[in-house]
Simulated scan of single mutants.
Amino acid sequence: MLPAAARMRASSEFDATVRGGVRAARPTLVVHARAVGDDDRRVGFVVSKKVGNAVTRNRVKRQLRHLARRQLTTTPAGTRVVVRALPAAASSQVADDLAAAWSVALGKLGRLR
């Protein structure tokens, strides 16, 4: 499970990351990343009703949280990441897409720093 300290909860953090950062898209999800001044790493998830009913959305969120925990170990300190699931995430495995989009977003972010 993803530690509570590594989760984004405030809508202001989500907005700042989505609007002020870089993004990388895949068929099942979009990853937004932004560099901030502090030393912690945080990740947030956006899974809308377009993905499916409550059971489907919660399954997708659980899967993304599990996969994001692995990705956070290689993420530099001071990084905020928002993972937005697209409707295709309900019917396919997102592991490969998350890993690829995460690395592309961090690569873009590294060029901007």
Rank of each mutant, 00 (worst) to 15 (best):
P3S: 14
P3Y: 13
A4D: 15
A4S: 14
A5R: 11
A6C: 10
A6D: 11
A6K: 11
R7G: 02
R9C: 15
S11E: 15
S11T: 15
S12Q: 09
S12G: 10
E13H: 15
F14H: 15
D15G: 13
A16W: 10
A16T: 12
T17G: 15
T17S: 13
V18P: 06
R19F: 14
G20C: 12
G20L: 15
G21D: 02
V22A: 09
R23F: 01
A25F: 04
A25W: 12
R26S: 15
P27T: 05
P27Y: 11
T28N: 13
L29H: 08
V31C: 08
V31Y: 04
A33H: 00
A33W: 00
A35M: 08
A35K: 00
G37D: 14
G37T: 01
G37S: 08
D38S: 13
D40G: 13
R42I: 13
R42N: 12
G44D: 07
G44R: 03
G44M: 10
S48N: 13
S48F: 00
S48M: 00
K49D: 00
K50P: 06
N53M: 10
V55M: 13
V55L: 05
T56W: 03
T56H: 09
T56D: 07
R57Q: 06
R57A: 02
R59F: 03
R59Y: 00
V60Y: 00
V60R: 01
K61S: 04
K61A: 12
R62W: 12
R62E: 02
Q63D: 08
L64F: 07
R65N: 08
H66I: 09
H66A: 07
L67D: 12
R69A: 07
R70Q: 05
R70T: 08
R70D: 05
Q71F: 08
L72E: 10
L72T: 13
T73N: 11
T74R: 04
T75I: 02
A77M: 03
T79Q: 04
R80V: 02
R80E: 01
V82D: 05
V82Q: 09
V82R: 03
V83W: 05
R84Q: 04
R84M: 04
A85F: 05
P87L: 10
P87V: 01
A88H: 03
A88S: 01
A89F: 13
A90H: 00
S91K: 06
Q93D: 01
V94G: 03
V94D: 07
V94L: 12
A95P: 07
A95G: 01
A95H: 05
D97S: 04
L98P: 09
A99P: 01
A100R: 04
A101N: 14
W102Q: 11
W102P: 06
S103A: 09
S103G: 08
V104F: 10
A105R: 06
A105D: 12
L106T: 07
L106A: 14
L106S: 08
K108M: 01
